[in-house]
């Protein structure tokens, strides 16, 4: 395609092509410090395209395509091309990745051990992971966490963090402005601004980490912790995985092992500070 870029996030090598220069330039800035291997073949292809030639210039709208597509996905205006690229990359992984068990979860790590936070959008899992990533933890990813069926380890997928709405100001107050992408206001998902993970998180992205805590955060309400059983954690994580069924017995083995070896809790929290405190508290008990 006319404009293109190659990006490696965790174990995945992407190739992203675009009919416009802008989304590729925005990606180039966000992923400038990620490791590059120009000779490595791509695992996944993303296409950002105009579905009619004149739509490149006239009210340009960005369609999201690639190896895997969602048939009725609505296009985005060119001003949100970066969001289109992010959605396209997520889509390829969600529908196409088969090497690891894919959890729709954020994760952070410390001392070679990781906390996995799984929850629907609005649970605050992204914001918590981003904030912990600025407070002494290694950010592994804000959207996907990969479980290696062979070892049971968690693998990082540290794409640029997608901060939404209130989280933007909360995180922006703590980081260098050079680590923030452009503000994408009024997208279908609200306001969005990307955060470039810290250099050490990117440098460590290939290091596997043993999971020691499974958390299911819920934003809102008084701080609360509740232990949940292996069966419930199993059910919740099958629902949070886009490739559990496609992996067959490898996925079954990875997930039964994960919920048996890793204590799981739901946590409720009214604000980020108390959420982070709950994570620290449970971490201290888990590694004791």
């Amino acid at each position: 395609m006319r404009h293109n870029i190659r990006i490696a996030v965790g174990p995945v090598q992407f190739r992203i092509g675009s009919d416009w220069a802008e989304p590729v330039a925005a990606l180039a800035r966000l992923y400038a410090a990620y490791p590059q291997d120009e000779t490595r073949p791509a695992d996944a292809t993303v296409r950002l395209y105009a579905n009619r030639p004149w739509r490149r210039w006239l009210r340009p709208s960005v369609h999201i395509g690639g190896d895997y597509i969602v048939p009725d996905a609505l296009p985005l205006p060119l001003s949100m091309g970066l969001l289109a690229a992010e959605m396209g990359m997520n889509l390829q992984i969600a529908l196409g990745w088969r090497r690891h068990l894919l959890l729709h979860a954020s994760a952070v790590a410390r001392d070679g051990r990781s906390v996995i936070l799984s929850g629907a959008s609005g649970s605050g899992k992204s914001t918590l992971a981003a904030l912990l990533g600025e407070a002494g933890w290694r950010l592994m990813g804000d959207e996907f966490t990969l479980i290696d069926p062979a070892s049971g380890d968690a693998l990082a997928f540290p794409r640029a963090v997608s901060l939404k709405n209130e989280a933007i100001a909360e995180v922006a107050a703590r980081v260098d402005a050079a680590r923030l992408g452009p503000l994408l206001a009024g997208t279908p998902k609200g306001d969005i601004r990307h955060l470039i993970p810290r250099a050490d998180a990117v440098a460590a992205m290939h290091e596997p980490v043993r999971p020691v805590l499974l958390l299911f955060p819920q934003f809102g309400g008084a701080p609360a912790i509740e232990r949940i059983g292996e069966g419930e954690a199993f059910v919740r994580l099958t629902e949070a995985s886009t490739n559990y069924i496609a992996l067959g017995e490898a996925g079954f083995a990875a997930l039964t092992r994960l919920v048996r070896e890793t204590p799981a809790f739901t946590i409720a929290y009214p604000d980020s500070a108390s959420g982070m405190a709950l994570v620290e508290q449970l971490w201290a008990e888990a590694v004791r």
Partner: peptide, 22 residues
């Protein structure tokens, strides 16, 4: 069948259908 107890539940993986039953 591969049957793995998970607390009070049991997860059953059926190798023929590739389905999981709790």
């Amino acid at each position: 069948l591969r049957i793995e107890p998970l607390g009070e539940l049991a997860a059953i993986f059926d190798r023929r259908s590739q389905q999981t039953h709790l």
